[in-house]
Write a protein that binds this DNA or RNA. Structure first.
Lengths: 160, 160
DNA sequence: CAATTCCCGATCAATTCAGTCGACTTTATA
DNA sequence: TATAAAGTCGACTGAATTGATCGGGAATTG
């Protein structure tokens, strides 16, 4: 699983969808406009989300996408893994990172980190995000979420 | 901060160095051979590690690199942030991800995830890895570290 | 002086990301 | 039935990043 803008887009789009599906299917065109995401790109992402059975599609006029199941049953980890192809190539265990036939010296470190990340992402579901979002827009409260280091925005990419 | 093979290479190389620096400076050529990492690539990484004052260099014959301070005072997070340039471009808060002037709907989610990752990586220092590695090579014990999902190796990339 | 080692910049192929485009299928409804 | 709305699919693109390579230095030891 990867987490990039791709994964963020997917989660954001799914949340938009979750917040609006009471009025029937939600069109990608709408999501694209509200969330400022390219429509064509969204189509690609939702193709994957549909194949992973996280959303269901309705064709034709009045159509769009709905969640395939209850928002409580869709975790962020599922969304992210759905939109990203697994990458076996860069796996720790190949000749490049791991030494000989043994796991490389830092294998356990990455495994442990990956597990923590996955567990966290899997502990948050769409319903949680919906509640959080509704509270925010209702009360206009800025949630203080102790940033890692103020002003520093960086990327993390990790081997699972 | 990013974490890719780049970061893993850096941590692996630093660990190799930490385990061998008792005999004086460790050459990059040695690290490259033992860890199967391209020498030129290592040079690039150690240039950054030196500029971040995580290692110190000694030129000339018999030269090489040493840790710039005690292994207990060097965390994995420091190593990883050292070798990766900060990326302000893809920051959540720009026009692309965040809506209008408000933080995007999933901002808190990514912040929280990033914080957890950083905290974990910052809680592990080089000395921890040295002890772990020595135990492993001594007892030849395979540490069971509950992989996320068996056989699945994937990438995670995350906004900090 | 010669060998060793770090230092630095330029360049490169492969991959991925994010987006675009064009053509197609399904379906509601006028 | 004709039209338009909407999803479906595949190919393609430019930019960025990764990991690597190469050549030429500079410092230091003996």
């Amino acid at each position: 699983m990867r987490l990039t803008t791709k994964g963020r887009f997917a989660v954001t789009a799914m949340l938009d969808l979750a917040l609006r599906q009471d009025n029937g299917p939600v069109t990608l065109a709408g999501v694209a406009e509200r969330q400022r995401i390219s429509l064509s790109y969204l189509e690609q992402l939702f193709g994957k989300l549909r194949r992973q059975e996280l959303v269901a599609s309705v064709r034709g006029p009045g159509g769009g996408y709905c969640l395939a199941r209850d928002a409580r049953k869709i975790t962020v980890a599922q969304i992210i893994t759905a939109v990203d192809e697994p990458l076996d190539a860069t796996q720790c265990g190949g000749k490049e990172n791991c030494l000989d036939e043994h796991r490389c010296m830092t294998h356990d470190l990455w495994s442990s980190l990956s597990r923590r990340m996955y567990d966290y992402l899997d502990s948050v579901n769409l319903h949680d995000l919906m509640v959080q979002q509704r509270d925010k827009t209702t009360h206009r409260v800025v949630v203080h979420d102790h940033a890692v280091r103020p002003g520093v925005s960086e990327m993390v990419r990790v081997q699972l």
